[in-house]
Design a binder for these strands. Structure first.
Lengths: 335, 335
DNA sequence: CATTTTTGCTAAAAGGTTTTAATAGTGGTC
DNA sequence: GACCACTATTAAAACCTTTTAGCAAAAATG
């Protein structure tokens, strides 16, 4: 760690030019016809003194930072936290580091951060596109910056994305609820949101209902709603429609649903989207449509690096299957 | 965003030298006696064309990257995820970005990452020092790299840290359990770990017991233990000692404890360390010693930036109080 | 043996800033 | 009018790499 040693120091010590050393260190010895003898001598010396090139100088010259920008909606959400962990692991394995940020629902901050990360010349972006980010993502693409979206995508912007098969996840969950003859009236609790994952989950729910020729009951909650208001709304929704079962579109909504249960002592059969420690332990345990977090993370890094290495590469759309985990909440009524 | 504009472009357009512009942009106009007229002309033009200095070149020259390295033990742990979120917000507010990583219990990876972040010339480090990191942290300090530790500290290394008042948290939690006359035998479930937060929590537990002149029952679990084995151990610990109440040293252990409850249908009164969504919803709701995550995050960034701005600054040790949140699990026996 | 090709290596430019040291001009002092 | 101090600005060095373009010597070619 001590005092930084420079490539020119090595050149001086070894009596060779800086260029030669640079070539050797960048694996161009053969190509540049540096003799094996010299190559080895340099390599050994470099190892001995523990020289490491200055990343900043390197990046300045090459334009590559070996840093990826990770922008997630909310890192304190277990789904994103887990994915972030695996993204970091995958990137690390490929020699990339992560400049990270949690955007919340602050579009202004999100745009600013994308701009700032762009200014820092990150080599690529991994983004959960929250609403209002369409144009800035489009701008990135126009500037040929490698981007991969996840959790949801932007239909009008043709770029890489990795998402779960939300449609089939919701479809199978709803069908599972429908298979129980007692569940006559099945509701769907979602968010006011145009995002694709929400739309797909709703479509999956609808298709299952259509197959069984049942009526749909859909309640959307404001994204930033106070929790107690959301609780009241969910309670009302269930009561008024005498619902037998509910599919919750996100784990956060499902947790709010459970709080309704705790407060009003009433909740129908249910399935939640995204797994959570809580769901396994809850009495009864909550059935879920779980996403393959590790796979998603790996694909994200893979797709992004592919694009970085080959800017001409064609756009990839990857859809990862969901897993329906059936627990007690959908087989026996809650309380 | 389009084509990058350089400081030299501006110089040419305005017919002034690059130096002058650099001085003005870095707020040294007065000091360097640049006339107000020119200063304004430059500032306006810069704004008009939207020039932004190339961060890499800037960093290369100044040695400052405006990037902090954040190394947490496990980002998929809600406690760390929440803290990471607030650290990011605080840093962002001060114009710093975060290079992030989740270390797990992989000491080799952790050391390598610290080295890599150091090579990238991050301006400072925020670290949860997992075991085996003592020497590398000491090395950072020897190299005058600003560092602040959190969650726990390294006693033999004199550096900044921000931790919760684990001792008093555990002390008050234990005392709270002791105040209930039914709780004769109170146990403590912790990890095999020399880390300070664990030691302090145990000491707090001990002191409360001493005050009441009660026997201590302490069970330590291996950090990487399989969950089912840990469950069996906890079950045995409670059964064999006929415990009336248990204080769990981490939220993860407490969750394992709850799983014991679910499986064996038996668990005494309890208090957990660190809050979790799960605990509020559990039936009965779990009492906790909760940490002031937002305060900790803010202090971390504050202390680190202080050190970065003034390398001579004296070392800060900040201890943030914990909050005892009494819920049902410690007032009525579970089940 | 004169010419071309290949081998093995290097000087210098480029990447885009900040900062040091210097310069030309102006006004004041004795 | 010689000297000094101050004002307003700038040329060039520095930060540390990578890469382009090129050179001298050795080997190959006819």
């Amino acid at each position: 760690m001590s005092k930084r040693i420079l490539i020119s120091d090595i050149a001086k010590s070894l009596g060779v030019s800086v260029t030669t050393i640079s070539f050797i260190l960048n694996g161009k010895a053969k190509e540049k016809r540096i003799s094996d003898a010299l190559t080895n001598r340099v390599l050994e010396y470099v190892k001995k003194v523990g020289y490491k090139p200055n990343q900043l100088a390197q990046s300045l010259r090459t334009g590559q930072t070996k840093i990826l920008g990770l922008l997630v909606e909310d890192i304190s959400n277990l789904f994103f936290a887990n994915i972030a962990k695996h993204i970091e692991e995958s990137s690390y394995a490929s020699g990339y580091h992560l400049l990270y940020c949690s955007m919340g629902n602050d579009t202004v901050k999100a745009k600013e951060l994308i701009q700032l990360f762009y200014d820092r010349q990150v080599d690529g972006f991994i983004i959960t596109p929250t609403e209002g980010l369409e144009d800035v993502v489009a701008l990135l693409l126009k500037n040929n910056v490698p981007v991969v979206l996840f959790d949801r995508y932007i239909p009008q912007v043709e770029t890489n994305y990795v998402v779960s098969d939300n449609f089939n996840g919701a479809f199978r969950a709803t069908k599972h609820l429908l298979e129980n003859k007692d569940n006559r009236r099945i509701g769907f609790v979602s968010l006011y949101s145009d995002q694709t994952q929400m739309r797909d989950r709703m479509d999956g729910y609808m298709k299952a209902l259509d197959q069984y020729q049942r009526q749909a009951y859909i309640k959307k909650i404001q994204i930033d709603e106070q929790e107690d208001i959301a609780m009241a709304q969910i309670f009302e929704f269930i009561e008024d429609n005498k619902l037998d079962a509910v599919l919750f579109a996100t784990n956060y909504l499902a947790i709010t649903g459970l709080k309704v249960n705790k407060k009003y002592g009433k909740l129908p059969a249910m399935v939640a989207f995204d797994d959570h420690t809580l769901f396994k332990l809850h009495e009864p345990a909550i059935s879920v449509v779980s996403q393959r977090i590790e796979t998603i993370a790996e694909e994200l890094v893979k797709v992004l690096l592919r694009q970085i290495r080959n800017p001409q590469a064609d756009v990839k759309h990857i859809v990862v299957p969901c897993d329906l985990k059936i627990r007690d909440s959908s087989t026996a009524k809650i309380k």
